[in-house]
Amino acid sequence: MSLSINTTILQSRLFLGTAGYPSPDTLAQAISAAKPGLVTVSLRRENKAGKGQDFWNIIKGFNIPILPNTAGCHSINEAITTAEMAREIFETDLIKLEIIGDDYTLQPDPFKLVEAAEILNAKGFTVLPYMTDDLVLAEKLVDAGCDILMPWGAPIGSGRGLNNPYALKLLRDRFPDKILVVDAGLGAPSHASAVMEMGFDAVLLNTAVAKAGDPPIMAGAFAKVVEAGRAAYLAGLIAPQETASASTPLIDKPIWHQKL
């Protein structure tokens, strides 16, 4: 079954960032290969040079729903103004709420995040908070009105994968009705597969594709594993066992009990 956010049916459970590609052409090829459900974009200052316009012309051609972010914001006010500007420009209520608390790890500030999420939800936004994997923070964000949570796998751009699978699994178990997306830190398609096998609804990544040796091929690889991981979750994984269990039946084996 497809993932929907509000009334929008997404074509994929892979959400793709648009930053850091070697060229605009490579970005376009990566989006073509990934066929993502959402593409993330940011807002930056514009002048008569119109540097944002060429980028937008690439993105709008794909007709994929836009997820604007508040990347780089350190204060609640900055994040709220950025979200309002994003709504004005993209005509979407979706906002990836990102408020950085630590410049070294780019770890989100949990306290400001909750406060900003409450304000933005009250203003009618659909808030997708970029958060750590803390269970209590998740509860506070849900209390603030969030129906979607985006815990990190690892720090942004680190490619480390899942630093704390236990915490992520706990979030999935405790919020079975919320849309959960692992955002940030993934490096390999196997990381995305693990996320989807855990029952997460989607993954959001950027650097793992943008900085790959061949971004379009990597984008396609991630798209395949996200689909495969989701199918595996729905199919039901077997429980790991401590001992072997023969898969081939031994009854009527022709040399059964023959003495060596």
Partner: peptide, 10 residues
């Protein structure tokens, strides 16, 4: 006055 446009983002 702040004037902003879409830019690459993750």
């Amino acid at each position: 006055i702040e004037i902003v446009a879409p830019m690459q983002g993750g």
